[in-house]
Design a protein around this nucleic acid. Structure first.
Lengths: 192, 192
DNA sequence: TGATATTGTCAGCGACTGATGACATCAATT
DNA sequence: AATTGATGTCATCAGTCGCTGACAATATCA
């Protein structure tokens, strides 16, 4: 018990900078995703990480620096299936569960810093669009770049409205049902 | 000149409560839409309305009260075409131009007060969903409520990502091109 | 004209936020 | 063991925010 490498324990092993960094990153991801950038406070992030908020400034320069870092990391783009239906299902599933990636929130945000916009663009492009565009091109879909981004945009809209409960039927419907209804829609988007 | 009913003039006609109310509503709509609820400040709204910010509290109780009021009014649901393609085109067009309705922002917002969620729900339902559902039902589309909300959700995602520029191709593409690509997609959503 | 309610102005309060810098604590090296 | 750099803690600052209450200006009506 009380393993020295205990991660989520109440007592932080002192003077372990990499553990502190990661704790802040994890907590930041969660809080930014749950509350959005503006509502998220450095004090809240620090508390959830079990770390003094002042360390955000030390390791990430400022709040926005931590935000940028959370955007970059986190999503391990393991063996994703880039078949359009499967990818939409993955995105909706991922963004349905809060606390993992603030990218969907950034994509849906009204105002973005230049740095953040650039970061989001490059992450989404690298992790999702690049290979999705390839798949669409193989299928002979016209304007594959545009259609790939449209698929991501659709996922964003669905995830956000499902999360905040403004569209009641959509929010209440089980994910399977939503995805089933979307099947032919995605096919139409990916058709030649 | 210097008409007594001059609305955007530098000098406000004194003691005209209805004009003041409307000025605050208009400015609120614009600022909430441009900046989102959190970034919008009562001082900024007051300045744009040419009105002392303290009057927000008098006429709308508080900032959120003004926000609720902006959600309710504004959109004159004139002779809308509820044919799905046309409706999506209308929504994307409307939400492409900032400063008119903060509803899209509310739909894309991560966290919502109960009051705001309820207001957004009822406005969207009354103005858009109700008749769109009818059209979908006439067409024999299954789960017309779900599909109607999916169309709105798609419009939200597209509008937000286009506005913040995170998806570069989609943001840069002319609206016509985007809507053209979406035509078959909407048809698939509305198909029986 | 004088009395009264409505409307607009202004200064400032209390709370919160991100950030800073002085200080304490720890660990590694000599 | 002593030194030194790295790491963590804390109090606090400066700025911003929504909101309030006292007061001034205006309109309405007797």
């Amino acid at each position: 018990m009380t393993s020295i490498a205990d991660k989520a324990s109440t007592r932080r092993r002192p003077h372990d900078s990499t553990a502190t960094r990661r704790a802040l990153l994890d907590a930041g991801r969660t809080v930014f995703d749950e509350l959005g950038y503006d509502r998220a406070t450095t004090r809240e992030i620090g508390e959830r990480a079990g770390v003094d908020p002042a360390l955000i400034a030390r390791y990430f320069d400022c709040k926005e620096g931590l935000f940028l870092a959370t955007l970059a990391g986190g999503a391990d783009d393991e063996q994703l299936d880039f078949e359009p239906r499967a990818l939409l299902a993955f995105l909706v599933e991922r963004w349905d569960e809060r606390g993992h990636s603030p990218i969907s929130r950034a994509l849906a945000s009204p105002t973005l810093t230049d740095d953040v916009r650039q970061q989001v663009s490059s992450v989404v492009s690298e992790r999702l669009l690049k290979r999705l565009v390839e798949v669409l091109r193989e299928r002979g879909a016209p304007e594959p770049e545009l259609r790939a981004e449209l698929l991501v945009a659709m996922a964003v809209g669905i995830a956000m409205t499902r999360a905040n409960g403004t569209l009641e039927t959509l929010s209440g419907a089980p994910r399977d049902e939503v995805l089933a209804a979307l099947g032919p829609v995605v096919d139409a988007l990916a058709a030649p």
